[in-house]
Structures are given as C-alpha cells and as structure tokens.
Amino acid sequence: MTVEGTGSSEAADEVELVARAVDGDRAALEEVIRRLQDPLYRLALRMAWRPSDAEDAVQEILIRVVTRLATWRAEARLLTWAYRVGVNYLLNLRRQTPQEARQLSLDEFRDGLADGLAEEDYRGPEAALLAEEVRLSCTQAVLQCLERDERIAFVLTDVFELSSAEAAWILEVSPAAYRKRLERARRRIRIFMDSTCGLVNAEAFCRCARRVPKALALGRIDPARPVFAVHPVSPSGRGVAEAAAQLGRLHDAAAVLRAHPDYAAPQQKVDAIGALLRSGRFPLLE
C-alpha cells in the first residue's frame, strides 16, 4: 500500500514533518502528536468504551507512535500508520470492558433494553440531554458486544469510513479476509439494530427517551455528570447537535453508530507526554 496522493503537498508535508521530528525537532514532534491525538483517542474510545480507559490507552498509543516514528516509511498516510500502531495495542489490551467481561451477546443486550422500557418519553429535567446521553452510551455499548476483531473492522470502515484496503493494511490481513470479517460484523449489527433501535426502524421497540428512567435507576447515566453528551470535542469537529442532525437524515445501523461528536483527547494526558519528552528521561525515538 502506498500513501494516498503521493506527490501531493499534504503527503510531502507529512514526510517533511516526520523527518524533522525524527531529527530531534521538538516543535515538529509536538505537531505530530497534535495531528494524531484526537483521531487516536476516538479509536480508543470506540474500542475501550469508557473515557477513562480510552484516556489511558491513547497515552500509551501516542508513546508507541513517538518511539516508532523513525520506522514510518510513508507507505501509508501518517494517521493510517498510527492507526495500525493503535489497533495492535487495543486488540491486545488485557483490560476488558464490562460487556467483554460478562461476554454479553447482542441478544442479551436487546433483552436488557426491553426490560423496564417506559411507555412514554422521559419529560423530567434535562430530558433532551439525557436522551442524547442514552443514545451515545447505548451505541458505545452495542459495539462492545462484538468480538474485538469484528468490532475493529466495523469501526474502521463503517464508523471511521476507511476503505477496505486501508483497514486491511492496518490490521495486517488480506483484503479478502478483512471483507469477510467486516461482513460478519455488519450482519450482526444490522440484525440487532433493525430489530431493536427505533432510530433505524420505526417498528423496533426501543426509544432513547423511553430508556432514560431505567438508565437513571440503574446508574447507567448520571444526570449530574453526563459522560458522552458533554464530552469536549475537537476545535473544528462535530458537536452533539451536529452529529444528531446528521443522524436525522440517515436511518441505517452504521449511521446511528457513526453519529457521535468528534471527541477530543484529554489535554492533560497529551501534556503529560510532552512533559515526559522535555524531561530528557524518555527515549525519544528508537
């Protein structure tokens, strides 16, 4: 696989930037981190589910990217290569999400959503905000019911909208093997969403606003500290309202799972990496 648009100013800019970073230019290295931190955090969040776990994961991934930067040969875009580093880390992460630990299936998750669903939409305080929190939390949880290899395939192509060729390169598998993996994931998600989610199928039983009371009772969402609906986003990225507006125009399973804000990486974790690099105690590049 070669860099998309080889010879373009963007590709040349990446090559020049990485060369300066490898040569010890701290400002160039900080720029590399700045370009990669948010996309890599969003990847970690989709795989690790909880922001706290994603924060720890993205810090480790960024350190791995920095220490291996000299091995980038521009055979793929810098971000695509960084995704390969991140995916390798996330697929082998020992820490499990709650759904993974319970080996929760999509069928069991569907049964859980049906249990306690209110007959009417929630009308209490912050109703719209809490319905969004339910939607964002639920779509995160759905992904965790897939095996990791299927989850990453779905995330790379149907959420991040990478081509099958790029995703296969990231996962270091043949395009044919990748397509089979992706189709398994798509089929499982499609069947679940079509039978469950009212955003995809008007005949399905689940509605975010009717799930709010049960989610509050179970402590799945906290009205005082919503996790996803108020999560910081990238400076030029989509917010919750824009993501929801896009969702309103697209009623398919992939669109529902894709309609998340463009979350930003926690700056304190990124700043910690910068401090580590400036300390002189960190082996900058292998």
Score class of each variant (00 low, 15 high):
161 E>V: 11
238 R>N: 10
104 L>N: 05
55 E>L: 05
195 S>P: 05
174 S>E: 13
254 A>W: 04
253 A>V: 04
243 A>K: 00
262 D>Q: 09
140 Q>T: 15
160 F>Q: 12
67 T>I: 06
280 G>R: 12
61 I>Q: 01
282 F>S: 07
105 S>A: 10
70 A>Y: 03
50 R>N: 09
127 A>E: 14
38 D>C: 01
91 L>A: 02
251 H>S: 11
134 V>C: 11
193 M>P: 02
186 R>Q: 15
283 P>W: 02
219 G>Y: 12
273 I>R: 06
202 A>N: 08
134 V>E: 11
282 F>I: 08
3 V>D: 03
81 W>T: 01
221 I>L: 13
120 E>A: 09
153 A>S: 13
160 F>G: 00
54 A>E: 05
135 R>P: 03
240 V>W: 07
212 V>W: 02
151 R>Y: 03
221 I>V: 14
4 E>N: 08
138 C>V: 15
260 H>Q: 15
19 A>P: 01
17 L>F: 07
13 D>W: 10
17 L>T: 03
26 R>L: 14
193 M>I: 04
139 T>V: 14
227 V>I: 15
227 V>D: 01
84 R>K: 15
54 A>R: 00
14 E>W: 06
140 Q>Y: 02
20 R>C: 01
133 E>W: 09
231 H>L: 11
275 A>R: 15
217 A>H: 14
159 V>G: 00
277 L>F: 08
167 A>P: 03
61 I>Y: 00
127 A>H: 11
209 A>C: 08
156 L>F: 07
174 S>G: 13
216 L>K: 13
177 A>L: 10
93 L>Q: 09
79 L>Q: 11
83 Y>T: 03
5 G>R: 14
228 F>E: 02
161 E>H: 10
22 V>S: 08
102 R>W: 12
99 Q>E: 15
252 D>V: 13
